[in-house]
Structure formats: C-alpha cells, structure tokens
C-alpha cells in the first residue's frame, strides 16, 4: 500500500525520421486494407484529400509560396 518510487519510467521518444517512416508504413497498410476489402475506389479520394491537406499546410507554412499557388488556381 505504498507509492512506488518512479525510477525507470523514462520514455525515449522516437525520432522524426522514424515517425515519418512509420506513417509511410501506416499509409501502405491502409491502402492494403482497402484493396483487400474491395474498396480500392476510395484510394484516389484519399490521395487527393491528403495532397490537398499537404498543400494547405505548405501554403500556411511558407508564405512566399502564395503567389505560385495563386497562379495555379
């Protein structure tokens, strides 16, 4: 009935590279799952949405990309 001394619960976070690699694997797993379940037709929509999300993120982060984006649309 006593509190244990927290001696060894120090987390070692994964690096940025490891996280990105893991995200890539997750995307691959999702694609595999949708193909296996006969729902491959969802993939183009997901890819477009993801690319849009990335584009919006880039536009927010890199201000000077705005003029180029403007010409695209």
């Amino acid at each position: 009935m006593t509190t244990k001394v927290p001696v060894r619960s120090v987390f070692t976070p994964a690096s940025w590279g490891q996280r990105m690699a893991e995200r890539g694997r997750t995307a691959g797993e999702l694609a595999g799952l949708l193909i296996r379940n006969g729902r491959w037709w969802l993939l183009p929509m997901l890819i477009i949405m993801s690319l849009t999300a990335v584009l919006l993120g880039v536009v927010h982060v890199i201000e000077y990309a705005a003029p180029f984006v403007y010409t695209v649309f």
């Binding site: 987390f11 976070p13 994964a14 949405m49």
Partner: peptide, 24 residues
C-alpha cells in the same frame, strides 16, 4: 472527421511510439 483522421488519428501508431517511447 477527415481533418481529425488525416490530421492525427490515422498516424496513431507513430504517435504512440513517439509519446510512449516504444518501438513499432
């Protein structure tokens, strides 16, 4: 839902590894 999932929840595996310090 797409904002929540594509923004964070889909990448739960890498987030768990990052936050808890475990390997995949």
């Amino acid at each position: 839902a797409m904002r929540t999932w594509l923004g964070s929840r889909l990448w739960l595996k890498s987030d768990i590894c990052k936050e808890l310090g475990c390997s995949s």
